[in-house]
Design a protein around this nucleic acid. Structure first.
Lengths: 348, 348
DNA sequence: TGTTAGCACTCTGCAAAGCCGAGTGCTAAC
DNA sequence: GTTAGCACTCGGCTTTGCAGAGTGCTAACA
């Protein structure tokens, strides 16, 4: 696969970087002015023709310069993108973000999303930590009158989840209190992901001894255990940034993407982010499963809590994205998030 | 002020309605074809010239038709907009929305926002009910370990608010339990808005008797009472709809508005909606206090809970907005919301 | 006095034409 | 293998011309 000559790779890298910077097709004359290679435009033209034939470059029209193809971006990301540090100003902003003592875990994620979109000028999607790994700290059931009640679940990260549940008629208030005590006694410390099996294995049987009308309360457990299925909340930041990018100056191009981002509660937004993988993942154009994003690049990273993948953060922009910078920022951010989250978990 | 002749009013109304529909300047020939008035183009031209001089019409350029000025829209809304019913399809969608039994009050608001933006093809802002009027149903304090704890407040509408608080070192666990019991005994049934005064007047004094280190717990009350200041949450729907409107086809026009809408937690979005007034309020162009919206119209309505204004819903679009339809839809929606919310309050 | 027909005028939008500049591919020479 | 040179292509910009829509004004009409 990697059959490019060193010179071809230099030229490809130069074209990608130039195009990312100026959003204009890159011509042979422009490249020949680069310090790095002392080559005439004609030579470069020959190389570019080869690169185009190999599929790494596209030509918008006969007499324009070349732009990277999606395959070209992919090669750049895999083999050419330079290593290095993030610029100090950016590091500073990220430091400030993670130094402030934000109480709630969800706030941290939301703020991260906002800052990332400011830093990158792209849109951001952030996925709050899934409930699975979090451990139950407290359970409460508050009757609202009538049949309805609200069930509250607090986890060790300080996250509060609440769910409305229906009670059967005329449950004795004492039974509710006993149920809550029983739940807390049995479930505190259990990871939310294992709540359901715990509920049925250990608690349901014991309920018969303690409660008068335990059949009616089983339903409550059912509703409560649905919380375990919650993947984290979705936060979207800087969607309007898409409009800054030249490739989305046309409203008809921008609208579908903005509509997708708007449905922050929808399933589609979740599927945008590649979950579970380790390290920073890059999806260029057609590599995206969501059809709306086939002219976009999504770069995402997963953060962990206590060594287990918990959520992820991603940046969405045109395929002409500043790969190097975004990848570095996401690496930094994901590891900072992992640290902050895990600290919170350990300290809590 | 109202010095327009009946014929001028007819012509103004026709121009406004035609322009709202087709988004193209309206010429005298077009108008003369309307059934209503049997007038030649020349006559209409004379009237239009007068209306322009009076400030009700604008002319984009010498040889274009006329478009309504902001003053023209204002006159239309105040004096000319026809009464009538909403189309059956729209009513149906709203009925369906308010018939479904959504558990959480916040969900109702959010769904309303989504449906409104679908129905109108404009953007929507919805303000969830402020905490003031809601009555305290339950208070809980869950220590997370270390100094931090999470305070949970459930209201009679089933809304759950939580807030992270810092405890002083080494508070005896028993004291926390006693404090929670005391708070519940004294505060359940109190409107959140009066919580703060209750806290200091009745409870703080009593704490000395019950608790060993009550000075350290006063701080907790302080933090808890901040919840009372919460205005409702902001929901934004259909922001991408702005891009459908011809006046926002230019990205540079659309971006500031979208950026404003994106900051759903910011103070500016709140100030977009005129709060407290009764009935449907219309703000046209320059009438908006937010500078970003001076080419937009905001139509908003306030819904009540138990006879008191609680939150509001608003629609944002270009000044060329379908005033009649949006006003009616908002009237319907606000009264439906008032009904649904108040029912919930009464039943809960 | 109000209404209308007619006419000259203005302005936009669109298409065609022409030119410039940027860039390419190819060939031949180095 | 590299480069200079040249013919060619194509988008973008400007100019020109023209059609269409619409106006304002004037003069005639009821």
């Amino acid at each position: 696969m990697d059959v490019l000559t060193p010179r071809q790779r230099m030229i490809l890298a130069a074209i990608v970087e130039d195009y990312i910077r100026f959003a204009e097709p890159v011509g042979s004359r422009t490249l020949s002015k680069h310090q790095e290679f002392q080559l005439s435009p004609a030579t470069i033209r020959n190389e570019m023709a080869d690169l185009e034939e190999l599929g790494y470059l596209d030509q918008p029209h006969t007499s324009a310069g070349r732009i990277p193809s999606q395959k070209g971006y992919r090669y750049y990301v895999d083999h050419l993108a330079a290593q290095g540090d993030i610029d100090p100003a950016t590091v500073h902003m990220l430091r400030v973000l993670f130094q402030q003592r934000l109480d709630e875990v969800e706030r941290v994620i939301q703020q991260t999303s906002v800052v990332l979109s400011q830093l990158t000028q792209y849109a951001t999607i952030a996925l709050g930590p899934a409930m699975h790994q979090q451990k139950i700290k407290h359970i409460q059931l508050v009757p609202l009158g009538g049949q309805s009640a609200v069930a509250i679940l607090v986890t060790d990260t300080g996250h509060v989840e609440n769910r409305h549940v229906q009670l059967a008629d005329d449950i004795p208030p004492d039974d509710v209190v006993r149920l809550v005590n029983l739940l807390n006694a049995k479930l505190v410390g259990t990871p939310v992901g294992r709540m359901r099996s715990h509920l049925y294995r250990e608690i349901a049987s014991e309920m018969a001894n303690v409660l008068e009308r335990y059949e009616d309360l089983i339903a409550v457990l059912d509703q409560l255990s649905e919380v375990a299925d919650d993947t984290g909340r979705v936060y979207v930041g800087g969607a309007a940034n898409m409009l800054v990018q030249p490739e989305f100056r046309d409203v008809e191009k921008a609208r579908p993407v903005l509509e997708l981002l708007e449905q922050a509660d929808g399933q589609q937004v979740r599927s945008v982010l590649p979950m579970g993988g380790s390290g920073v993942q890059v999806r260029i154009g057609m590599e995206n499963t969501v059809p709306t994003l086939q002219d976009c690049t999504v770069i995402a990273a997963t953060y962990q809590v206590g060594g287990v993948p918990a959520g992820s953060i991603g940046v969405i922009g045109p395929t002409r994205m500043n790969y190097v910078r975004v990848i570095r920022i996401l690496e930094y951010t994901a590891s900072a998030l992992t640290r902050v989250m895990t600290e919170r978990l350990a300290g809590g």
